[in-house]
Design a protein around this nucleic acid. Structure first.
Length: 749
DNA sequence: CTCACGCTCTTTTTT
DNA sequence: AGAGCGTGAG
């Protein structure tokens, strides 16, 4: 059986196991995804179950994509009929089919965090509370926190679950929030899971039908499931008990989102007779990387003790660098990338820069841009969160779901059509008076007196579009979307702005239309409801604007959370300072610190060949400069595994004398072999920062892009010598060449 | 009603 | 330092 050939003994055991519950404890880099995909392939290949009988959930869209691809690669096109989704997407699938039974129409809207916030803001205003004093976002997160709790899902009163020392009536807001969600025919992220649990428990026959559909269940990242997810899996698998869960308690990093590590720790109790397979051979990282990671995670008290074996063996030591400030940190990282590209022939895709918080990405982006190195930022401001995309989606959502008031309020005056505060108040009044929805007041023309023309305009746009939406599978989704853009005059009004910003918004809308085409391609009989619900969960998805052709050259930037499940030859774990990593807000409790430590463990174990751990001595936050201490986690790595260095850049300097960290171990020679002079020593003093190159004999400077008549565009790595002997070394692609300047006609590129 | 300026708050992590 | 929001003038 060829499918088993490439597996080790424990991997084989996990793949072959067929009936009954199975727990796979999969250490970092132990071939977890490989086991899951091979297991699925085996079940299908041996005719145990048809592809459509398998239900697999992962945690992110990215992981879902990856798993789909790998299964299709293993068993061909039939692999695409395996049901593989995130928990949230699976819930949407289930609710769309059977939700009517518990009063959820299939046209429900999904409210993301910002929709939630605007709804709560409305409520606060109605309750005469000041949204400036009480942040809607923080209420939203409190509500979400409550809804993650097991007690609530099992029927407890929400108010009892929160210490209620609030200046406001949390219970009242909570109730009103849910009344409004129901009135708007909308569900938030928590609801998707909770309502699915209710549906499965409802005795309406949905569970039985789903159990006829799926008989084998696979749950990835089980250590990060919350109670609702745990229940969904449990109910679905309750008939045949063919449930296989995979996880690693050391990589649980989502407790703040309600993930309960006990789900994995108690699996054997939950499912008596469960088989357990431990995967403890790491195929990803070199031994020093693994040793460093183990010596950090070992400090957690609350964990299953375990050791991971390195399959790969020796490699480079961990490089630790404390830069003078965040600019120095970024320079160090980017110079190291340039150097390794040159020295080892690596390309951009081999590098990843991790940070604890999204806000840290900027300095790295600036530096990379300065050096003309292509990069992509995963996460952060996502495509679907941009204003213009949210506006357009609000049109689509409101057309699909006339009860969705949050969307209506967003677009009624976007683009501006003269419907302001006063007009809105009138609409509200009328609606309240007549006891109808605001939209009904508008569409039925109930508003008396002179009404702003904009209101009628808005009504006509919506009615017209709703009309063509009805002809949907025949009217193509993409045509419909273009019609909405046309009717709403959204792009037209941006064009009139004639600003750079407006131009880029228009481009984004163009990208959105492209993505609609792609969606249509993949789903020939796409409906509006289905499209919207799928897209609402597409948050981690890469920005469609990323040029797929240049992907191979791009350095990846992301938070450590986003890095879970990925691997890179070279990893930079940055901002390793107290109060950042571990984060200040997690540092009060031992559990908080342990979770940060697991996060750190996740970060280190992403690296295959090399890891650089960096921090800054000074860092500017909120326009204020703070002195930073290195993260406690770095002290947990034995010095013998570390090669320490320093990096000093121009920009602001420490006012105090530098306090040597790892003083005795600081190696002064740099590990850059591409002209270290240029990158380090030159910038050593502020005066050097204007870059008038030493003797100033060349009209070029290091790092300039230049055009060579024969080799094309390259970058200057170094300039040395003087007079007739002035030599310039230029990097073209992966190789560099040295020229005597006086014989080489170079131009600035 | 719209635009411009100035004030405030920001930074955990994400489905 | 920057974005987003609210206030006040046109």
């Amino acid at each position: 059986m060829s499918i088993l050939d490439s597996l080790n003994e424990s991997q084989k055991k996990a793949v072959i196991h067929t009936d009954g519950p199975l727990l796979i404890l999969a250490g970092a880099g132990s071939g977890k995804t490989r086991v899951i995909t091979h297991r699925i392939a085996r079940l299908i290949g041996d005719g145990v179950v048809p592809p459509t009988g398998i239900f697999a959930v992962t945690f992110t869209n990215k992981a879902t994509e990856e798993m789909k691809n790998r299964i299709v690669r293993l068993i061909g096109p039939q692999g695409s009929s395996v049901f593989i989704k995130t928990f949230h997407a699976a819930s949407v699938y289930i609710l769309r089919r059977y939700g009517e039974a518990i009063g959820i129409p299939s046209s429900f809207s999904i409210y993301d965090t910002s929709d939630q916030a605007s709804l709560i803001k409305e409520i606060l205003l109605q309750m005469r509370l000041d949204p400036k004093k009480i942040r809607p976002e923080s209420i939203a997160s409190k509500i979400s926190e409550v809804k993650d709790r097991a007690e609530l899902i099992d029927g407890a009163d929400p108010t009892l679950l929160l210490q209620k020392n609030f200046s406001y009536d949390f219970h009242e807001i909570y109730e009103e929030y849910h009344r409004r969600l129901a009135a708007n025919n909308a569900l938030d992220f928590n609801d998707l899971l909770i309502k699915t649990v209710h549906l499965l428990r409802s005795g309406t026959g949905a569970l039985e039908r789903l159990q006829r559909q799926w008989t084998y269940f696979m749950i990835d990242e089980y250590q990060d499931t919350n109670y609702a997810q745990y229940l969904i899996a449990k109910h679905l698998a309750s008939a045949g008990k063919n449930i296989c869960v995979v996880g690693d308690d050391d990589q649980s990093i989502y407790s703040w989102r309600g993930a309960d590590i006990r789900n994995i720790l108690n699996f054997e109790k939950d499912y008596p007779g469960a088989a357990v397979v431990t995967l403890d051979t790491n195929y990803r990282s070199t031994r020093p990387i693994l040793d460093a990671a183990s010596s950090v995670i070992r400090n957690n008290v609350n964990r299953k003790a375990k050791e991971i074996r390195s399959h790969k063996g020796d490699g480079e030591r961990v490089v630790w660098c404390r830069a003078n400030n965040e600019y120095g940190e970024a320079e160090f990282v980017v110079n190291t990338i340039i150097s390794l590209k040159h020295r080892e022939g690596l390309s951009g895709r081999d590098f990843a820069v991790f940070y604890r918080t999204n806000a840290q990405s900027r300095v790295f982006e600036d530096r990379l841009r300065k050096e003309n190195i292509p990069y992509r930022v995963v996460g952060g401001m996502k495509f679907y969160e941009r204003k213009e995309i949210k506006d357009l989606l609000a049109y689509l959502k409101f057309i699909a779901n006339p009860l969705d008031q949050v969307s209506m309020l967003r677009i009624i005056n976007t683009p501006a059509r003269g419907v302001g505060r006063v007009a809105l108040e009138r609409i509200r009044e009328t609606a309240r008076g007549a006891g109808v929805s605001e939209w009904t007041a508008i569409s039925e023309g109930l508003i008396g007196g002179k009404i702003p023309r904009g209101i009628a305009e808005f009504r006509d746009i919506i009615l017209k579009c709703r009309d063509s939406a009805r002809g949907m599978p025949e009217t193509r989704l993409s045509d419909f979307v273009e019609q909405v853009i046309e009717e709403s005059r959204y792009v037209k009004s941006l064009e009139e702005e004639e600003s750079v910003e407006a131009r880029s918004r228009i481009e984004n809308i163009g990208e959105f239309v492209n993505s609609v085409y792609d969606y249509q391609q993949a789903n020939p009989d796409a409906t509006l409801d289905g499209f919207l619900q799928d897209i609402s969960l597409y948050t981690t998805e890469e920005n469609p604007e990323d040029d797929p052709d240049s992907r191979g050259n791009q350095v990846t930037l992301m938070t450590v959370h986003n890095a879970k499940g990925l691997e890179f030859p070279v990893v930079f774990l940055t901002g390793m300072e107290e109060d950042i990593f571990p984060h200040k807000l997690s540092s009060d409790t031992e559990e908080g610190i342990e979770e940060e430590r697991r996060l750190c463990y996740v970060g280190i174990t992403r690296a295959m060949e090399r890891i650089y751990i960096t921090c800054a001595e000074l860092r500017r936050t909120f326009n204020e400069i703070y002195h930073k201490e290195p993260s406690r986690f770095i002290f947990e790595i034995p010095g013998s595994l570390i090669e320490a260095t320093e990096y000093i850049s121009a920009g602001y300097q420490s006012a105090q004398p530098r306090r040597g960290f790892f003083e005795k171990k600081v190696y002064n020679e740099s590990h850059f072999d591409v002209e270290p002079d240029d990158s380090i020593d030159d910038d050593n003093t502020p005066e050097a920062s204007n870059q008038t190159e030493g003797p100033g004999e060349s009209k070029f400077r290091v790092r300039d892009s230049v055009l060579h008549p024969k080799y094309g565009v390259g970058r200057i790595l170094s300039i040395e010598g003087s007079g007739d002997n002035l030599k310039i070394t230029i990097l073209f692609g992966r190789s560099s060449k040295t020229f005597l300047e006086k014989y080489t006609p170079l131009e600035k590129a």
